[in-house]
Amino acid sequence: MNSLKLDENQLIENFEAKLAKNEMIEPKDWMPAQYRKHLIRQISQHAHSEIIGMQPEGNWITRAPSMRRKMVLLAKVQDEAGHGLYLYSAAESMGISREEMLDQLHTGAAKYSSIFNYPTLTWADMGAIGWLVDGAAIMNQVMLQRTSYGPYARAMVRICKEESFHQRQGYEIMNVLATGSVEQKEMAQDALNRWWWPSLMMFGPRDEESPNSEQAIKWKIKRETNDQLRQRFVNQTVSQVEKIGLVVPDKAIKWNEAKNEYDFGEINWDEFWTVVKGNGPCNKVRIANKIKSHEEGAWVREAANAHAEKNNKTKAA
């Protein structure tokens, strides 16, 4: 049977049959245009998040308070860059170039996780980010290891291994601070206060306001909804907060025996949408920094290309 001769309906049927059998969709397989578009948007957004996320943490590499912490943080930021690289490659397999994706990031056409539009103000923020932000990211990424697009799922398997390490080291930073001097404990609590709610926002809008979710679940790109993942994160994290003697900055937090999960307070959705729309505390500076290094690197990329071309000509001659 020649797939070129199949009509659109048959192609869709085959595609959906594959999904129903939990088979992966691979780059050479036929896929609906909307599936491709959805994944390009999601994977590139994920890649951009890794790349922009290097800035708030990179902000503390030169000031990390011990050699061990400095090395671990530098390695972590380098890991994020590596994740960006695998994810750009996964998106490229769907027919978009790195240049196009970077253009979309620089012009604001492509988004990245809003969490990175908050500033990192103290060393404790390195703990809070590793623990909460990477922790929230893992909830999503564990699910995405079973996403229907092969290259994305495989990138996630690799990324998840490193992210769990990041989360452990973040929690360890917080643990040391929370059980340290009075000032250190205050620093830890302050960081938790500032990062708690933005971390819950990382799961995205409530299910009823998440326009892309339903289709993503139908296509098995997502396997669980925003609210399900958010709830699991709260359930897991509250006891971690208590274990190190800190307080969740939410008066409504309460164990619900009947539902076997925590109830928690209402997220400030106005703040969520403000940051998504570009008006968070660091949206402008993050993109300006990114554009600046890209522009300052232009002559370096040109030189590397010019040298490679000259070399190719010499070899061809």
Binding site: I51, M54, Q55, G58, I61, T62, K70, M71, L74, A75, V77, Q78, A81, G82, G84, L85, Y88, N289, S293, E296, G297, A298, V300, R301
Partner: peptide
């Protein structure tokens, strides 16, 4: 390490962070 996230392109950023480390 001051250059981390400021490289001319991603692969070079990773290389420089790696060398710094």
């Amino acid at each position: 390490s001051e250059q981390c996230s400021k490289g001319p392109f991603l692969e070079e950023d990773i290389a420089c962070s790696n060398i710094a480390l």
